[in-house]
Structure formats: C-alpha cells, structure tokens
C-alpha cells in the first residue's frame, strides 16, 4: 500500500507536484495518466526517496522509503529502463541488487526466466534494445517478490507480444493481492489493464475514478441540417462537427422528443460510449484552462 499525503514538489516558483493526496490499495492495478510534464515521474521519484518532497509525505506500508531495511522486498520499481551501467551484463546488474537485499541468488534466474531474459542477460546491458531493457527493469522490480510494484511507462518500446505480456503480468500480480501502480501515456493500454485511474495535470490530481466510471460517461451524438435551436436549449451540447452535436447527460429518447418539439429534422441520433481516451482529453483540457486562468 502506498499513501501520499499533501505531496508537493516545487522547483523555484514552478510546482511540479501540487498537494497530492492518494491511497493506493492492494489487489488493484492503478493507472497513472497525465500529459508530459504533469508530474508523474516526479511523484514516483518522491515515493522512492530519490527526490525529497518540498512538503507532504509518501509512505509505503506506513513507512518512508528510506526506513525500509530491504526495500526491494517491499516495493519493486522500474522508473527508467535505461538506468543501467552499459558495460555490466544484465545478470550481474541483477546479482548486485540481489546481494544488496540479502536475497538468495536463485532469484536472479527465476526473474530472468519469468521475463524471458535468461539468454539476453549474459550480454552487456549497453547492447540491449529498449524492449530488452524494459524486461530487465521489470525483472529487477520483481526480484524481491514485493507487495508493491511501481512501473513508469513499462510498455514503452515493447512489441505487441511484450505489451500483452505486461498486461497479463500486471493483472496477475494484482490478482495475487499486490498493489500495482503503473504510469502510461497509452490510454488504450490503461483501458485494458487498470482497475482505477488517477489523472494528473500540471501536478494536480484531476481525476481519481474507477475505470468503469471514467469510460462509461455515455454521450449522444446528433446529426442534422439545422441543429442550432437544439444546441440553444441543451447547455450540455457541444459542436463536434459542422452539422453534429455531442450531448452528455441525456438519453436518445429525451433528445429525440426535444428535436420533434422544435420541429428539427435529424439524420442521425445515437448513443456513444466515450472511450477512455476521450475522457482523458476532456479532463486534461479542463486542467489546462484552469491552470491558465488561475
């Protein structure tokens, strides 16, 4: 379990992470979304004790990272897959980590087998593709069999097989009762992996919702030659094309009746499930406007 309380990071007058309070619970995959520079990586670095917060706390199982005696047994993290000495073999990289945690050396072979890196780990890490580096990084995160996993953009650079492998792995880790915290800019990937979504914009929490609720916000699409009177009576309507309106919070029946009363011809009237991507764009657009007016 990861608990953030009022977590804030400022660089001069720029606020990278702004008063973030969250609790990440075991048994769920929590997706961490946000545009570049939203503060996702900084948040993860503060959880790891790499950057110190300007104010607030980040606790893992009730303790700050620095207080963990053998941290990898509690939390496994992959923040930067390329953060490996290029002259060291993947296996030696993992062996050093194993030794530092007092773990049995057999763990190295176990995680290498699990990530499909048993062969590649003999080579120097500098020769790895991004996909291989990601697998090595995930092997490192799994080394201590931790109850919390934190991965920053783990599907970056993976081929479709690798992406599917990660998705299955994260689901099974959560099913085992672990806390899984994973950031991504691939909304479609999150839609299939996460149970809960946290959206960050300009360092602020702008959404923290179960996946169903973010995706389910259904809308109605209306197409016709003269829709302006309809748009005037429906404040929730917005133009999504020259002859197309998208309305949220109404059913097709309500809108159909409304159009009939106004005497408007309609070419199309249908309910659409908004995808996560659309919800995400809407949320982050709001945060940008909010940030500009503040």
């Amino acid at each position: 379990m990861i608990t953030l309380h009022g977590l804030t990071k400022r660089y001069g007058d720029k606020t990278a992470v702004d008063d973030l309070t969250l609790e990440l619970t075991p048994g769920t995959v929590t997706g961490f979304l946000g545009p570049n520079g939203a503060g996702k990586s900084t948040t993860m670095r503060m959880i790891m004790g790499l950057d110190s917060p300007t104010s607030g706390t980040a606790l893992i199982g009730g303790r700050p990272y620095a207080d963990l005696d053998r941290p990898l047994r509690t939390i496994g993290a992959l923040l930067d897959a390329k953060a490996v000495h290029p002259a060291r073999s993947g296996r030696d990289h993992l062996r050093a980590m194993t030794v530092s945690q007092g773990l049995p050396s057999s763990r190295v072979e176990e995680v290498l087998a699990l990530t499909g890196m048993a062969e590649g780990a003999r080579r120097r890490a500098g020769t790895y593709s991004l996909g291989m580096s990601q697998r090595l990084g995930i092997a490192g995160a799994l080394l201590g069999d931790p109850e919390v996993l934190m991965l920053d953009e783990p599907v970056n650079g993976l081929d479709p097989d690798g992406v599917r492998w990660i998705r299955t792995l994260l689901r099974s880790l959560a099913a085992e009762g672990r806390t899984v915290f994973v950031s991504s800019h691939l909304m479609s990937e999150m839609e299939r992996t996460a149970d809960r979504l946290i959206v960050l914009g300009k360092g602020r929490l702008i959404a923290d919702e179960p996946m169903e609720r973010l995706v389910a916000g259904s809308e109605v699409r209306v197409r016709g030659p003269r829709l302006r009177p309809l748009a005037d009576v429906l404040p929730a309507a917005r133009w999504t094309g020259p002859d197309e309106l998208t309305v949220s919070g109404h059913t097709t029946e309500q809108i159909g009746r409304q159009a009939y009363e106004l005497g408007l011809p309609l070419y199309e009237l249908r309910a659409v499930e908004s995808s996560l991507e659309e919800s995400y764009m809407r949320l982050t657009a709001d945060s940008t406007e909010f940030g500009a007016s503040a």
Binding site: M48, G49, L72, V84, M97
Partner: peptide
Amino acid sequence: MVTLACTP
C-alpha cells in the same frame, strides 16, 4: 537510481 533503490 537503482543503487539508491537498493540502499536508500
């Protein structure tokens, strides 16, 4: 980063 993750 990895070193400090192992030995904070």
